[in-house]
C-alpha cells in the first residue's frame, strides 16, 4: 500500500472512531456544573474527527500534487519516490515513516523489521485470542502448554522435541512460581 493511500485509510478510520466516540457522549448524564462530565469526551471525539479528516485530506492533497508534478515532468519515473521526497520537503520535522524501511537517516540506525504477510499476522492474533478465551475454562497449565507448543511448532516444526519440553516446562515453572511463590492463583480449569 502506498503511503498516501495508507494515510487516507488511517485518517478515515480515525475520523470514524472519533464520530462513534462523540455519539457515545450523548448518553452521559448532564449535570449543572460549569464543565460537565460530557465536556471532555466531546472535545476528544471532535478532535479525533478533525485530525482524522485532516490526515486524510493531507494524503489526498499530496497525492494530487504528486500526480500533477508527474504530469508536469512528463517522466515515467516512480511517483512514489518523488512523493516521498516532497513529503519530507513539505515539513521540516517530518521524516519518513518507519515502515518505509529506509533506515538511512542516522549512523547506527538498524533496519526496520521486515513486514510479515497480513495473513500470518491475522493467524497469530487468532491463536492469541483462542488462548485468551480458553485460559480460564481450560486452566493455565493445559492452555499455556498447548499455546506455546502451537506457536513454536509453527515456527520451527522440526524441533518438536525441544518445543514440547519447553512448552511443558515453562508452563509448569511459571505456574509453580506464581501459585506457590507469589500466591497468585492462576486458573486450574479442567485439571481442578
Amino acid at each position: 500500500m502506498s503511503t498516501h493511500r495508507a494515510d487516507l485509510f488511517t485518517g478515515c478510520a480515525v475520523a470514524v472512531i472519533g464520530a462513534v466516540y462523540y455519539i457515545a457522549t450523548f448518553s452521559i448524564q448532564e449535570t449543572a456544573n460549569i464543565v460537565t462530565p460530557r465536556t471532555f469526551p466531546a472535545i476528544v471525539g471532535i478532535a479525533l474527527i478533525v485530525l482524522g479528516l485532516f490526515l486524510a485530506g493531507q494524503a489526498i492533497f499530496r497525492h494530487r500534487k504528486n500526480t500533477l508534478a508527474e504530469v508536469g515532468a512528463g517522466s515515467s519515473g516512480s511517483a512514489e519516490v518523488r512523493g516521498d521526497v516532497q513529503r519530507s520537503a513539505a515539513s521540516v520535522r517530518e521524516s519518513s515513516d518507519s515502515d518505509d524501511a529506509d533506515g538511512g537517516v542516522g549512523g547506527v540506525v538498524l533496519e526496520a523489521p521486515p513486514e510479515a504477510p497480513a495473513r500470518k499476522i491475522v493467524f497469530q492474533f487468532v491463536l492469541f485470542f483462542i488462548y485468551l478465551a480458553i485460559l480460564i475454562p481450560v486452566g493455565f497449565l493445559l492452555s499455556t502448554a498447548a499455546f506455546l507448543m502451537g506457536l513454536t511448532s509453527i515456527y520451527a516444526p522440526d524441533k518438536w522435541i525441544r518445543n514440547l519440553i519447553f512448552s511443558v516446562a515453562f508452563a509448569v515453572v511459571i505456574y509453580v512460581a506464581f501459585v506457590y511463590g507469589l500466591a497468585v492463583y492462576l486458573p486450574v480449569g479442567i485439571l481442578g
Binding site: 480460564i136 501459585v179 506457590y180 511463590g181 507469589l182 500466591a183 492463583y185 486458573p187 480449569g189 481442578g192
Partner: peptide, 25 residues
C-alpha cells in the same frame, strides 16, 4: 510462602472462576 498456600488452598482452589485479587492472595 508454601505453608501459606497450603493453608488457604482448601476453600479457594476449587472455585475456579472466582476472582481472587492479587493483593489479597
Amino acid at each position: 510462602t508454601r505453608r501459606a498456600t497450603s493453608a488457604s488452598e482448601g476453600p479457594r482452589l476449587n472455585r475456579r472462576n472466582r476472582a481472587v485479587a492479587v493483593g489479597a492472595a
